[in-house]
């Protein structure tokens, strides 16, 4: 007696449905970034304050080194000029390292604070039940959140990068733009894949997860080498390499290391202490990206069932 028309279920329909869902879910973020433009100015310049202290320290070291070179009488004029050029290159590499770190920090903070706790907050607002009730794929929901977050954060990161270049006079040297783009995007996918996985876990842990984010923030800044070449950790005997390896699980670490190698030219390699060749890092990043996405998918599927069983998918007061 079904008078209601049959609904489509074919592959084309599903692809269309989920593509629309991704666009729909990313829309508030993308619009949000445009709707309050004053906010972009803050977002671009605030991180600069955070990295300025590192930049000044590196610059001060550079100034002292150059002063020492100038004062050294045993050098010939040619040797002196070469040494000074070397010192400038070294300072530029370190400052560039910090600016790149400051740029990528934006993505990491977005993943940690916004992506990860997104589903939890959506539940509090009352959106989550409406999302979960819809026919879209759960990965489209997470994907939409990620795309929106990436877009919004890219605006912020790009402005930080531009401001860093202008304010601190960093010189970048890109020989292989294709690899650079590949590394950047694979890093983002891996990073947001990790965020999607966290989002699923946080759905069940709720408020406690908030503390976990706070707990993770600083140590990961350190172990990922956001503000210094992570290869430096390997020079620390004992715990250094262990911390660096653990930090490498966060996709920002390897991504950042590869980005530094790709933007600073071969002459600066000595200053940035690469962890591994770019190709190796890209490969690992690909594995991490796929791994996190698969984990996120299964984590959410599992936790959705668990939440539906325990009655935790919807906030109580509704």
């Amino acid at each position: 007696m079904s008078a209601a028309p049959a609904r489509r279920t074919d592959l084309r329909y599903r692809l269309g449905l989920n593509a629309r869902a991704v666009v729909g879910r990313s829309y508030p973020r993308i619009i949000g970034a445009n709707r309050e433009p004053s906010w972009i100015v803050f977002e671009a310049f605030l991180p600069l304050l955070g990295i300025a202290s590192y930049v000044f320290i590196y610059q001060a070291f550079g100034t002292r080194t150059i002063a020492a070179i100038v004062a050294n009488d045993s050098l010939t004029q040619a040797e002196r000029e070469a040494a000074i050029a070397g010192a400038h290159l070294w300072v530029n590499a370190l400052v560039a390292t910090v600016v790149l770190g400051g740029t990528m920090v934006a993505f990491w903070l977005n993943v940690l604070w916004s992506m990860a706790s997104q589903l939890y907050w959506e539940k509090e607002i009352g959106n989550l039940q409406l999302y979960m009730m819809a026919p879209m794929n759960r990965m489209a929901l997470l994907g939409g959140m990620a795309v929106g977050g990436m877009f919004m954060t890219s605006v912020r990161a790009l402005s930080t990068l531009a401001a860093g270049v202008i304010v601190f006079g960093v010189v970048f040297q890109v020989a292989d733009p294709l690899s650079l783009l590949a590394v950047f995007f694979v890093t983002l996918i891996a990073l947001y894949g990790m965020g999607m996985m966290f989002a699923s876990l946080y759905l069940l842990w709720g408020r406690e997860a908030w503390n976990l984010s706070a707990l993770m923030e600083e140590p990961i800044f350190f172990s990922s080498g956001m503000y210094f070449p992570v290869g430096g950790l390997f020079k620390i005997p004992g715990w250094g390499p262990a911390v660096a390896l653990a930090g490498s699980l966060v996709p920002a670490t390897l991504g950042l290391d590869a980005l530094r190698q790709l933007t600073l030219g071969p002459a600066s390699q000595a200053a940035i202490l690469p962890l591994a060749p770019v190709s190796t890092e890209l490969l690992i990043l690909c594995v991490l990206a796929v791994g996190f996405l698969v984990l996120a998918r299964y984590a959410l599927a599992y936790l959705e069932v668990l939440a539906k069983r325990e009655g935790k998918l919807t906030s109580r007061h509704q």
């Binding site: 329909y13 869902a21 666009v23 729909g24 879910r25 829309y27 508030p28 819809a134 879209m136």
Partner: peptide, 12 residues
């Protein structure tokens, strides 16, 4: 925009 967004989750 809000209503439109929710309709996208149904592929309308």
């Amino acid at each position: 925009e809000n209503v439109w967004m929710f309709s996208q989750f149904y592929g309308v």
